[in-house]
Protein backbone atom coordinates (compact mmCIF):
# COMPACT_ATOMS: atom_id res chain seq x y z
CA UNK A 1 0.00 0.00 0.00
CA UNK A 2 2.82 2.32 0.97
CA UNK A 3 4.39 1.60 -2.40
CA UNK A 4 1.35 2.81 -4.31
CA UNK A 5 1.00 5.86 -2.06
CA UNK A 6 4.54 6.80 -2.90
CA UNK A 7 3.89 6.51 -6.62
CA UNK A 8 0.57 8.34 -6.68
CA UNK A 9 1.57 11.15 -4.29
CA UNK A 10 4.55 12.09 -6.42
CA UNK A 11 3.85 15.23 -8.49
CA UNK A 12 6.42 14.00 -11.03
CA UNK A 13 3.89 11.37 -12.11
CA UNK A 14 1.35 14.03 -13.04
CA UNK A 15 3.90 16.30 -14.68
CA UNK A 16 5.00 13.31 -16.76
CA UNK A 17 1.35 12.57 -17.54
CA UNK A 18 0.99 16.04 -18.99
CA UNK A 19 4.18 15.69 -21.00
CA UNK A 20 3.14 12.29 -22.36
CA UNK A 21 -0.39 13.49 -23.11
CA UNK A 22 0.75 16.50 -25.14
CA UNK A 23 1.59 14.85 -28.50
CA UNK A 24 -1.45 12.59 -28.23
CA UNK A 25 -3.78 15.50 -27.45
CA UNK A 26 -2.40 17.66 -30.27
CA UNK A 27 -2.78 14.92 -32.87
CA UNK A 28 -6.17 13.87 -31.49
CA UNK A 29 -7.53 17.43 -31.69
CA UNK A 30 -6.13 17.56 -35.23
CA UNK A 31 -7.82 14.29 -36.08
CA UNK A 32 -11.05 15.66 -34.62
CA UNK A 33 -10.93 18.56 -37.09
CA UNK A 34 -10.34 16.20 -39.97
CA UNK A 35 -13.08 13.74 -39.05
CA UNK A 36 -15.59 16.42 -38.03
CA UNK A 37 -15.48 17.56 -41.64
CA UNK A 38 -15.91 13.97 -42.79
CA UNK A 39 -12.44 12.72 -43.68
CA UNK A 40 -11.18 9.71 -41.75
CA UNK A 41 -7.57 10.31 -40.77
CA UNK A 42 -5.58 7.26 -39.71
CA UNK A 43 -2.41 8.90 -41.06
CA UNK A 44 -1.66 10.85 -37.87
CA UNK A 45 1.24 8.50 -37.13
CA UNK A 46 2.91 9.18 -40.46
CA UNK A 47 2.17 12.90 -40.38
CA UNK A 48 3.70 13.15 -36.92
CA UNK A 49 6.86 11.42 -38.16
CA UNK A 50 7.16 13.82 -41.06
CA UNK A 51 6.59 16.79 -38.74
CA UNK A 52 9.20 15.46 -36.33
CA UNK A 53 11.77 14.92 -39.08
CA UNK A 54 11.37 18.17 -40.95
CA UNK A 55 11.21 20.04 -37.67
CA UNK A 56 14.69 18.79 -36.81
CA UNK A 57 15.93 19.30 -40.35
CA UNK A 58 14.88 22.95 -40.45
CA UNK A 59 16.03 23.59 -36.89
CA UNK A 60 19.45 22.08 -37.61
CA UNK A 61 19.83 24.10 -40.81
CA UNK A 62 18.68 27.42 -39.40
CA UNK A 63 19.86 26.95 -35.79
CA UNK A 64 16.42 28.05 -34.71
CA UNK A 65 14.06 25.72 -32.92
CA UNK A 66 11.20 28.09 -33.66
CA UNK A 67 11.79 27.95 -37.40
CA UNK A 68 12.08 24.19 -36.99
CA UNK A 69 8.69 24.10 -35.34
CA UNK A 70 7.30 26.17 -38.18
CA UNK A 71 8.86 23.81 -40.73
CA UNK A 72 7.47 20.73 -39.01
CA UNK A 73 3.98 22.20 -38.87
CA UNK A 74 4.09 23.13 -42.56
CA UNK A 75 5.40 19.67 -43.46
CA UNK A 76 2.52 18.14 -41.51
CA UNK A 77 0.04 20.31 -43.36
CA UNK A 78 1.51 19.36 -46.75
CA UNK A 79 1.47 15.67 -45.85
CA UNK A 80 -2.18 16.01 -44.90
CA UNK A 81 -2.90 17.42 -48.36
CA UNK A 82 -1.71 14.09 -49.74
CA UNK A 83 -4.61 12.59 -47.81
CA UNK A 84 -7.07 15.38 -48.54
CA UNK A 85 -6.70 15.44 -52.30
CA UNK A 86 -7.44 11.77 -53.05
CA UNK A 87 -10.07 11.68 -50.29
CA UNK A 88 -11.91 14.73 -51.56
CA UNK A 89 -11.24 14.80 -55.30
CA UNK A 90 -10.83 11.14 -56.19
CA UNK A 91 -13.24 9.62 -53.68
CA UNK A 92 -10.48 7.23 -52.68
CA UNK A 93 -10.79 4.98 -49.68
CA UNK A 94 -9.54 7.19 -46.88
CA UNK A 95 -8.38 4.37 -44.65
CA UNK A 96 -6.21 2.91 -47.39
CA UNK A 97 -4.73 6.28 -48.35
CA UNK A 98 -4.03 6.89 -44.67
CA UNK A 99 -2.25 3.57 -44.45
CA UNK A 100 -0.22 4.37 -47.54
CA UNK A 101 0.89 7.65 -45.98
CA UNK A 102 1.93 5.90 -42.76
CA UNK A 103 4.10 3.40 -44.63
CA UNK A 104 5.47 6.11 -46.91
CA UNK A 105 6.28 8.48 -44.04
CA UNK A 106 8.01 5.77 -42.02
CA UNK A 107 10.15 4.82 -45.00
CA UNK A 108 10.83 8.36 -46.19
CA UNK A 109 11.95 9.74 -42.82
CA UNK A 110 14.21 6.75 -42.19
CA UNK A 111 15.61 6.97 -45.72
CA UNK A 112 16.25 10.72 -45.40
CA UNK A 113 17.80 10.31 -41.96
CA UNK A 114 20.33 7.86 -43.42
CA UNK A 115 20.83 9.74 -46.66
CA UNK A 116 21.10 13.28 -45.32
CA UNK A 117 22.76 12.68 -41.96
CA UNK A 118 24.38 9.26 -42.30
CA UNK A 119 24.49 6.76 -39.49
CA UNK A 120 25.39 9.25 -36.76
CA UNK A 121 21.88 10.68 -36.78
CA UNK A 122 20.81 14.30 -36.74
CA UNK A 123 23.42 16.92 -35.69
CA UNK A 124 23.99 17.19 -31.96
CA UNK A 125 24.01 20.98 -32.33
CA UNK A 126 20.28 20.97 -33.16
CA UNK A 127 18.53 23.42 -30.81
CA UNK A 128 15.48 22.33 -28.85
CA UNK A 129 12.36 24.27 -27.97
CA UNK A 130 12.55 26.26 -24.72
CA UNK A 131 11.16 25.14 -21.41
CA UNK A 132 8.80 27.70 -19.93
CA UNK A 133 8.45 28.37 -16.21
CA UNK A 134 5.15 29.97 -15.32
CA UNK A 135 5.57 32.87 -12.88
CA UNK A 136 3.69 32.53 -9.54
CA UNK A 137 2.03 29.24 -10.51
CA UNK A 138 5.30 27.32 -10.40
CA UNK A 139 5.67 28.28 -6.71
CA UNK A 140 2.35 26.75 -5.66
CA UNK A 141 3.14 23.48 -3.91
CA UNK A 142 2.21 20.32 -5.85
CA UNK A 143 0.18 22.11 -8.54
CA UNK A 144 3.22 24.19 -9.41
CA UNK A 145 5.32 21.07 -9.72
CA UNK A 146 2.73 19.50 -12.02
CA UNK A 147 1.92 22.36 -14.39
CA UNK A 148 4.44 25.09 -13.53
CA UNK A 149 7.35 24.11 -15.75
CA UNK A 150 7.03 22.47 -19.14
CA UNK A 151 8.18 22.60 -22.71
CA UNK A 152 6.52 25.47 -24.54
CA UNK A 153 4.54 23.04 -26.72
CA UNK A 154 2.73 21.73 -23.64
CA UNK A 155 1.25 25.19 -23.11
CA UNK A 156 0.56 25.53 -26.84
CA UNK A 157 -1.36 22.28 -26.55
CA UNK A 158 -3.62 23.80 -23.89
CA UNK A 159 -4.14 26.77 -26.17
CA UNK A 160 -5.06 24.60 -29.16
CA UNK A 161 -7.43 22.41 -27.17
CA UNK A 162 -9.37 25.47 -26.00
CA UNK A 163 -9.13 27.16 -29.39
CA UNK A 164 -10.23 23.94 -31.06
CA UNK A 165 -13.26 23.63 -28.86
CA UNK A 166 -14.17 27.27 -29.37
CA UNK A 167 -13.75 27.05 -33.14
CA UNK A 168 -15.76 23.87 -33.54
CA UNK A 169 -18.64 24.72 -31.24
CA UNK A 170 -18.83 28.51 -30.99
CA UNK A 171 -18.03 29.88 -34.42
CA UNK A 172 -19.71 29.96 -37.79
CA UNK A 173 -16.81 28.06 -39.30
CA UNK A 174 -17.13 25.29 -36.72
CA UNK A 175 -20.83 24.96 -37.42
CA UNK A 176 -20.04 24.64 -41.12
CA UNK A 177 -17.39 22.03 -40.45
CA UNK A 178 -19.77 19.95 -38.39
CA UNK A 179 -22.52 20.33 -40.97
CA UNK A 180 -20.20 19.08 -43.70
CA UNK A 181 -19.22 16.09 -41.59
CA UNK A 182 -22.79 15.18 -40.70
CA UNK A 183 -24.72 15.91 -43.86
CA UNK A 184 -22.67 17.27 -46.76
CA UNK A 185 -25.63 17.40 -49.16
CA UNK A 186 -27.56 19.66 -46.80
CA UNK A 187 -24.48 21.81 -46.22
CA UNK A 188 -23.93 22.21 -49.95
CA UNK A 189 -27.59 23.16 -50.38
CA UNK A 190 -27.19 26.15 -48.07
CA UNK A 191 -24.12 27.29 -49.96
CA UNK A 192 -21.27 25.80 -47.96
CA UNK A 193 -18.39 24.49 -50.08
CA UNK A 194 -17.93 20.90 -48.90
CA UNK A 195 -14.64 20.65 -50.75
CA UNK A 196 -13.11 23.78 -49.20
CA UNK A 197 -14.26 22.94 -45.68
CA UNK A 198 -12.88 19.42 -45.95
CA UNK A 199 -9.52 20.67 -47.23
CA UNK A 200 -9.42 23.08 -44.31
CA UNK A 201 -10.32 20.42 -41.75
CA UNK A 202 -7.74 17.92 -42.99
CA UNK A 203 -5.02 20.58 -43.27
CA UNK A 204 -5.63 21.88 -39.73
CA UNK A 205 -5.47 18.26 -38.61
CA UNK A 206 -2.17 17.75 -40.40
CA UNK A 207 -0.63 20.90 -38.95
CA UNK A 208 -1.57 19.91 -35.40
CA UNK A 209 -0.20 16.39 -35.98
CA UNK A 210 2.94 18.03 -37.36
CA UNK A 211 3.24 20.07 -34.17
CA UNK A 212 2.79 16.87 -32.16
CA UNK A 213 5.72 15.43 -34.08
CA UNK A 214 7.81 18.56 -33.52
CA UNK A 215 7.19 18.20 -29.80
CA UNK A 216 8.65 14.68 -29.89
CA UNK A 217 11.77 15.66 -31.83
CA UNK A 218 12.46 19.25 -30.73
CA UNK A 219 10.60 19.32 -27.41
CA UNK A 220 11.32 16.06 -25.66
CA UNK A 221 14.66 15.67 -27.48
CA UNK A 222 16.65 17.64 -30.00
CA UNK A 223 17.06 14.90 -32.54
CA UNK A 224 15.12 12.61 -34.84
CA UNK A 225 15.11 8.85 -34.48
CA UNK A 226 13.63 6.23 -36.80
CA UNK A 227 9.97 5.59 -35.99
CA UNK A 228 10.18 7.85 -32.94
CA UNK A 229 6.39 8.29 -32.82
CA UNK A 230 6.20 4.65 -31.76
CA UNK A 231 2.45 4.26 -32.23
CA UNK A 232 1.43 7.59 -30.67
CA UNK A 233 -0.47 8.52 -33.82
CA UNK A 234 -2.65 5.47 -33.38
CA UNK A 235 -3.13 6.22 -29.69
CA UNK A 236 -4.22 9.69 -30.78
CA UNK A 237 -6.74 8.04 -33.07
CA UNK A 238 -8.02 6.11 -30.07
CA UNK A 239 -8.09 9.29 -27.96
CA UNK A 240 -10.12 11.05 -30.61
CA UNK A 241 -12.70 8.26 -30.60
CA UNK A 242 -12.64 7.90 -26.85
CA UNK A 243 -13.17 11.65 -26.61
CA UNK A 244 -16.21 11.36 -28.84
CA UNK A 245 -14.79 13.63 -31.55
CA UNK A 246 -14.56 16.71 -29.31
CA UNK A 247 -11.37 18.63 -28.42
CA UNK A 248 -12.04 18.52 -24.67
CA UNK A 249 -12.90 14.85 -24.87
CA UNK A 250 -9.74 14.18 -26.87
CA UNK A 251 -7.72 16.07 -24.27
CA UNK A 252 -9.28 14.08 -21.43
CA UNK A 253 -8.60 10.80 -23.21
CA UNK A 254 -5.04 11.93 -23.97
CA UNK A 255 -4.54 12.67 -20.26
CA UNK A 256 -5.77 9.20 -19.40
CA UNK A 257 -3.48 7.59 -21.98
CA UNK A 258 -0.61 9.85 -20.90
CA UNK A 259 -1.22 8.76 -17.34
CA UNK A 260 -1.02 5.11 -18.37
CA UNK A 261 2.34 5.79 -20.03
CA UNK A 262 3.66 7.86 -17.11
CA UNK A 263 2.54 5.16 -14.69
CA UNK A 264 4.23 2.41 -16.66
CA UNK A 265 7.45 4.47 -16.59
CA UNK A 266 7.10 5.08 -12.84
CA UNK A 267 6.56 1.38 -12.32
CA UNK A 268 9.76 0.38 -14.09
CA UNK A 269 11.80 -1.96 -11.94
CA UNK A 270 8.97 -2.32 -9.43
CA UNK A 271 7.81 -5.78 -10.48
CA UNK A 272 4.48 -4.57 -11.89
CA UNK A 273 4.57 -5.15 -15.63
CA UNK A 274 4.68 -1.89 -17.59
CA UNK A 275 3.41 -3.84 -20.59
CA UNK A 276 0.19 -4.77 -18.83
CA UNK A 277 -0.38 -1.17 -17.70
CA UNK A 278 0.22 -0.15 -21.30
CA UNK A 279 -2.76 -2.22 -22.45
CA UNK A 280 -5.11 0.15 -20.66
CA UNK A 281 -5.57 2.80 -23.40
CA UNK A 282 -6.32 0.23 -26.08
CA UNK A 283 -8.69 -1.79 -23.92
CA UNK A 284 -10.53 1.37 -22.86
CA UNK A 285 -10.95 2.37 -26.49
CA UNK A 286 -12.61 -0.94 -27.33
CA UNK A 287 -14.85 -0.55 -24.29
CA UNK A 288 -15.74 2.98 -25.43
CA UNK A 289 -16.58 1.72 -28.91
CA UNK A 290 -18.77 -1.09 -27.67
CA UNK A 291 -20.84 1.46 -25.78
CA UNK A 292 -20.34 0.07 -22.30
CA UNK A 293 -19.58 3.56 -20.98
CA UNK A 294 -21.64 5.71 -23.32
CA UNK A 295 -21.58 5.11 -27.01
CA UNK A 296 -18.96 6.91 -29.09
CA UNK A 297 -20.58 7.86 -32.38
CA UNK A 298 -18.59 9.22 -35.31
CA UNK A 299 -19.82 12.11 -37.50
CA UNK A 300 -22.43 10.69 -39.84
CA UNK A 301 -20.54 11.34 -43.07
CA UNK A 302 -17.13 10.40 -41.64
CA UNK A 303 -15.18 8.48 -44.27
CA UNK A 304 -17.82 8.83 -46.98
CA UNK A 305 -16.63 10.48 -50.15
CA UNK A 306 -18.82 13.31 -51.30
CA UNK A 307 -19.78 13.68 -54.92
CA UNK A 308 -21.43 16.96 -55.77
CA UNK A 309 -24.66 16.56 -57.66
CA UNK A 310 -25.29 19.35 -60.02
Amino acid sequence: MNFWMQIFANPELYAATLAMATPIALAAVGGTFSERTGVVNIAMEGIMLVGAFFGVMVAAATHSAWLGMFGGVIAGGLMALALAWPAIRLQSDQVIVGMALNVFAGGLTAFLLNTVYGYNGTPTSTPSLPIVTLPWISHIPFIGQVIGQHDVVVYLMFLFVILGHFTLFHTNLGLRMRAVGEHPEAAETVGISVVKIRYLGVTIGGMLSGLAGVYLSLGMLSSFEVNMTNGRGFIALAAMIFGKWTPFGAFGAALLFGFATALSIALQGSGVSANLVGILPYALTIVALTGLIGRSRPPAADGLPYVATK
Binding site: P86, S92, I96, V97, A100, L101, V103, G106, V226
Partner: peptide, 25 residues
Protein backbone atom coordinates in the same frame (compact mmCIF):
# COMPACT_ATOMS: atom_id res chain seq x y z
CA UNK B 1 20.76 2.94 -50.64
CA UNK B 2 19.04 2.76 -47.26
CA UNK B 3 16.86 -0.36 -47.02
CA UNK B 4 13.98 1.87 -45.91
CA UNK B 5 13.64 2.89 -49.56
CA UNK B 6 11.46 -0.19 -50.04
CA UNK B 7 8.98 1.24 -47.51
CA UNK B 8 8.85 4.44 -49.54
CA UNK B 9 8.11 2.38 -52.66
CA UNK B 10 5.50 0.31 -50.81
CA UNK B 11 3.79 3.46 -49.54
CA UNK B 12 3.64 4.87 -53.05
CA UNK B 13 2.22 1.60 -54.39
CA UNK B 14 -0.58 1.54 -51.79
CA UNK B 15 -1.28 5.18 -52.50
CA UNK B 16 -1.72 4.50 -56.19
CA UNK B 17 -3.80 1.41 -55.56
CA UNK B 18 -6.16 3.54 -53.47
CA UNK B 19 -6.19 6.34 -56.00
CA UNK B 20 -6.76 4.13 -59.01
CA UNK B 21 -9.28 6.66 -60.22
CA UNK B 22 -6.34 8.93 -60.86
CA UNK B 23 -5.67 7.17 -64.17
CA UNK B 24 -9.07 8.13 -65.44
CA UNK B 25 -9.10 11.46 -63.64
Amino acid sequence: VSANMTDVITGIIIFFVATDRLYGY
